[in-house]
């Protein structure tokens, strides 16, 4: 077994374990713990991106998600007083129906992927280095790129407006 395969199984297991602990931590229901495990899940997913030779996206994943987005989450958790969450209990009906529906969805998806043979005969080829990705971004995808920058501006203005004390 190649070393890459070993790393794949390591990072995949780490990602899924941390994702599970975000959603249903058996020890605590504290949102801060969830946020910390989400950081771990995102970083191990960046490891998977590296294994897929998407180096630029791995860096962006760590910078944007584990950096910016998670800082936002933690700030909001600190702003809100969420101590009450720890004392609440799960509703049995919600847990049972959720587990049933999601388990069925997972079974269907995994079985469909396994039997379809979607990866048969495909070799890993594409290299996601910064230079080819940037070239694509500034030629073929120039218009979406500019639209996304406008979208970020809109989001920024919206957030400033929403966070004002006297919301009119």
């Amino acid at each position: 077994m190649a070393i890459q395969d070993l790393f794949f199984y390591l990072f995949a297991a780490l990602t899924l374990l941390c994702a599970f602990l975000v959603v249903a931590n058996p020890f605590t229901r504290n949102p801060v713990t969830s946020a910390m495990f989400l950081v771990l899940a995102i970083i191990s997913m960046a490891g998977l991106f590296v294994l897929l030779h998407a180096f630029f996206l791995a860096a962006v994943q760590v910078l944007v998600y584990a950096g910016a987005v998670m800082v936002l989450f933690l700030f909001v958790i600190m702003l809100l007083d969420l101590k009450e969450e720890v004392r609440r209990h799960y509703k049995t009906f919600g847990v049972v129906t959720g587990l049933l529906s999601v388990g069925a969805l997972a079974a269907i998806a995994v079985r469909a992927i396994w039997t379809s043979g979607v990866g048969a005969g495909l070799q890993p080829q594409a290299e996601g280095a910064t230079r080819p990705l940037g070239k694509l971004l500034f030629t073929q995808y120039l218009l979406p790129f500019e639209i996304v920058s406008v979208l970020l501006l809109v989001a920024m203005v919206g957030v400033v407006l929403l966070s004002k004390k006297d919301l009119k």
């Binding site: 989450f73 919600g94 847990v95 997972a106």
Partner: peptide, 19 residues
């Protein structure tokens, strides 16, 4: 796929908006 299902489980099961 498994990661997506875990996320969906969280949305269905947890009742805290941030989680």
């Amino acid at each position: 796929a498994v990661l997506f299902c875990l996320g969906a489980l969280g949305v269905i099961m947890r009742r805290n908006l941030i989680v």
